[in-house]
């Protein structure tokens, strides 16, 4: 099913492909043998698209994200960012093409929201990290796009989790990259904030023509608000529009448990 992802997903020709993977095998290299977590992965992510990555816990979402962001080398195949092998980028080049939002909590510091967002300009600033007028422009633009103007002067530990997620997204925006990858940005948030956050990502993808990839466990939100979804199961990794994937029962195999079933009319899981 994953072999010819492009024909299935109906990718239009006008939009630029930002990130793609051909015949990718991911996993870990041990001394003698390779531990393969998933193989024959074919993916193509376009600009202006919001893409959700879903899969059960422990299925290898993090490994896939690590491979797609160039932290980990693939066992086979390659990941192409802007039609160039991601592992051939220098670290400063990569920083200008890929920004990340991580789940880990920030170390203690006195950073204000503004200073935190401004750190996103590091790949462009001089050796002292001084912000030029253009850098300040990007920072202010990122702050207004994410609507955090009101808290810009606050310390990063004084704001709520939902606000902090927005601030971290603003930092990634300020980094001015065609691709942003977020690792489970909606954890620790309530439903209202989850919806707001994914809506914000959707808006950013279409307004800034960026490709935004995020991993999540909230399938219902992903179905309603993403342009594309990548479903990771123990058998394969499939990419497609929400409608296409529902038609092809891609979500039925998401959990290895007969009591949890996907109901395509409701667009969510039913527990028996």
């Amino acid at each position: 099913m994953a072999a010819d992802a492009k024909t299935q997903t109906g990718i239009s020709m006008e939009k630029k492909i930002v990130l793609s993977a051909q015949d990718l095998s991911i996993g870990y290299q041990h001394k003698k043998q390779n531990e393969t977590i998933a193989q024959a992965i074919n993916l193509a992510f376009e600009e202006s698209n919001l893409i959700a990555l879903i899969g059960a816990n422990g299925i290898g979402k993090s490994t896939l994200l690590r491979t797609l962001t160039g932290i980990q080398k693939p066992l086979l195949g390659e990941v192409q960012l802007n039609h160039k092998n991601i592992n051939s980028y220098s670290s400063s080049e990569l920083a200008q093409n890929l920004a990340v939002v991580l789940t880990e909590s920030l170390p203690p510091s006195n950073l204000t929201v503004f200073e935190l967002v401004a750190l996103g300009r590091q790949p462009y600033t001089n050796w002292l990290g001084k912000l030029s007028p253009e850098d300040l422009d990007s920072v202010n633009k990122a702050i207004s796009l994410t609507q955090i103007d009101g808290i810009a002067h606050k310390k990063h530990f004084e704001i709520s989790d939902g606000q902090l997620q927005k601030v971290l997204i603003a930092r990634a925006l300020a980094q001015d990259t065609p691709l942003i990858v977020l690792d489970e940005p909606t954890t620790h948030l309530d439903l209202q904030h989850k919806v707001n956050l994914i809506r914000l990502l959707k808006k950013l993808a279409s307004e800034t023509a960026k490709c935004i990839l995020y991993s999540t466990h909230d399938l219902d939100l992903a179905l309603q608000l993403s342009d594309q979804i990548v479903v990771m199961t123990s058998n394969d990794v499939v990419q497609g529009t929400p409608e296409y994937l529902m038609e092809h029962h891609a979500f039925d195999k998401l959990f290895n448990d007969k009591s949890i079933r996907f109901n395509s009319h409701k667009g969510g899981f039913v527990i028996r």
Partner: peptide, 8 residues
């Protein structure tokens, strides 16, 4: 990890 992602 963030530092690395910013090219450090």
């Amino acid at each position: 990890r963030y530092a690395k992602s910013m090219g450090i």
